[in-house]
Design a protein around this nucleic acid. Structure first.
Lengths: 319, 319
DNA sequence: CGGTCCGCTGCCGTTTTGGCATCGCCCGCC
DNA sequence: GGCGGGCGATGCCAAAACGGCAGCGGACCG
């Protein structure tokens, strides 16, 4: 429906080069070039600055770019809404998430959703914490499943669930019997740690720094999967929210002992949506589903098998 | 920039007929027809129901229509913003207003604005009170200069100014010396009244009904201009906010005596904008200008020449 | 100084779009 | 009950838009 020049313009801005964009679009660069020139003529201003190695949007280009991208997003959402009129939900849901949720939790939820709604497709991306704000506000994503961080502006938390960052260790570890731990209590023990610690969020980073605990990592990696295996081999303690390790905890292979450091014990996972974003029908369904799943996990964590009988008093709230 | 089919689709929906739309667009009806058919093919659903005497949007059509119109509005706003980068503000400002402001106040303000910003164009429409909500939320208008009515949903009042609905009469009228009046006190005197009373708003309508005053109108009209002349001829009392009659009051021809009925004495004129609407640069300028003008009138009314020295304590707030 | 990558442009075939005339349909009017 | 006028849809053809190809000039780099 929309003119091809919208896609062209968007791609050129993304790639910073007309030829690259044309390549990605599988059209001749001359076609893209002419569309851009014609667009600039229509607008009466230059939309790109031509440089030695490509193009860069001018101020006017940035403004138009925002309109174009918003139009494309709204078009997709509208199409999803129209398609959902027929009874079967369809459309594409864009989610950004924490690496740790992405490994176990979200695949399962996506699997359940796509079983129920076969025509819904999913885009799930792990984002660097420094880019979370931008990723949410860009309009490219429907929502994020992230640590709640109320420093984000223009973002609404439409559901949140308590989660405890804790020490994850094998069940035969000396500290496995503890109900709680502090970081300082872990100092003597070998630790496995995430590289760049960006898989932990900013809250955790400051907490680790503040506690003054000099944890000497025995193993450093940026792969959650690798660390899962390492911890299961008994090589050390890792610090994670339990959501990505529920299977192992349920089977008794691993033990998750909450840390009492306030910033960590009270951390929350939430569903964060850009304020004023209109959600497509599949996005709404997905949010409801994730909320339910997270709530169920919250209940499980509050009353794990070995402590059966205890029940959470704060099961999180529904959207 | 945007595909012609957007305009076609919008026009067809507005006119309820492909041929009428094609006529308005100055293109052949077959061209419009084919674009609509192609669009429906692309969407996979019917966008219009074909009837004996034209077409009517389906549910899917309504959804797409909303997207199309929003896209067009945002495009205009974006163009205005880009044009304003160059220093000179341009664009079209859509205003809805009260009939009484439309006669004297807004023409002056528009005149001042277009002197300052020659490339800005204006669309000023009087709306039936029952359509105010729709007119604001449709996205077709930037803002309204209206009686503040907090029953409107999804509308923000970004500036408001006290105004007193009062009895407007010639300076030699028996009641002209009064400082205040009630509706019942006016009963004995001839009254000129607006037809359908829709030029008064809903608040006033209920107030007139509640007061139990049986005012027998000598003259009824739906033309503010006509009533202005009639009142100046001494044929009766009219009930208005003074904003549209400032000239005559200043010259001493007419006297405006506030009514003490609470709903009327406390009525306010405000600038109402649809929530979440992004305002174009000229719209922002226009709002600032109107705010200033209204504030000045508020000061004048609080301290008219014959009562010089009194000053308003609530000059209204700026945006 | 050639090689490469960039944006841009002239030429030409293909695709899309619009205009005109016309069809089939239904409704209201005489 | 016929008939005119409105409606959307369609076939045909010209005009315009679009895209692909080849090539230009310029900037950079080894």
């Amino acid at each position: 429906m929309h003119a091809a020049v919208l896609r062209y313009f968007d791609h050129v801005a993304r790639h910073g080069s007309i030829r690259k964009a044309a390549d990605a679009l599988s059209v001749a660069s001359s076609a893209v070039n002419r569309q851009i020139l014609r667009l600039e003529d229509e607008m009466g201003v230059a939309l790109f600055e031509r440089g030695r190695s490509g193009v860069r949007p001018t101020a006017a280009g940035e403004l138009l770019l925002r309109h174009v991208r918003e139009t494309q997003n709204e078009y997709q959402r509208t199409r999803a809404e129209i398609a959902s009129l027929g009874g079967t939900v369809s459309g594409d849901v864009h989610i950004i998430s924490l690496e740790s949720l992405l490994v176990r939790f979200l695949p399962q939820v996506v699997d359940e959703m796509s079983a129920k709604h076969p025509k819904v497709s999913f885009t799930v991306l792990a984002v660097h914490p420094s880019e979370i704000g931008e990723a949410l506000r860009s309009g490219d994503n429907d929502f994020g499943v992230l640590f709640v961080d109320n420093r984000h502006r223009g973002v609404d938390v439409i559901a949140e669930f308590p989660t405890a960052v804790g020490a994850l260790m094998r069940s035969d570890h000396p500290l496995a019997g503890r109900k709680t731990l502090t970081l300082t209590e872990c100092v003597g023990h070998p630790v496995v740690m995430l590289q760049d610690r960006w898989l932990l969020d900013a809250i955790m980073a400051t907490e680790f720094a503040d506690s003054g605990a000099r944890l000497t990592p025995r193993i450093v990696s940026n792969s959650i999967e690798f660390m899962r295996q390492v911890i299961k081999s008994g090589l050390g303690i890792g610090f994670f929210t339990p959501v990505g390790f529920l299977e192992e905890i349920r089977r008794g292979e691993l033990v998750h002992v909450p840390l009492v450091e306030p910033g960590l014990a009270q951390s929350r996972i939430g569903i964060l949506v850009p304020r004023y974003r209109r959600l497509s029908p599949p996005a709404r369904l997905m949010i409801n589903h994730i909320s339910e799943r997270l709530r169920a996990f919250g209940d499980f964590l509050a009353a794990p098998p070995r402590h059966a009988g205890r029940r959470s008093t704060k099961p999180g709230r529904r959207s």
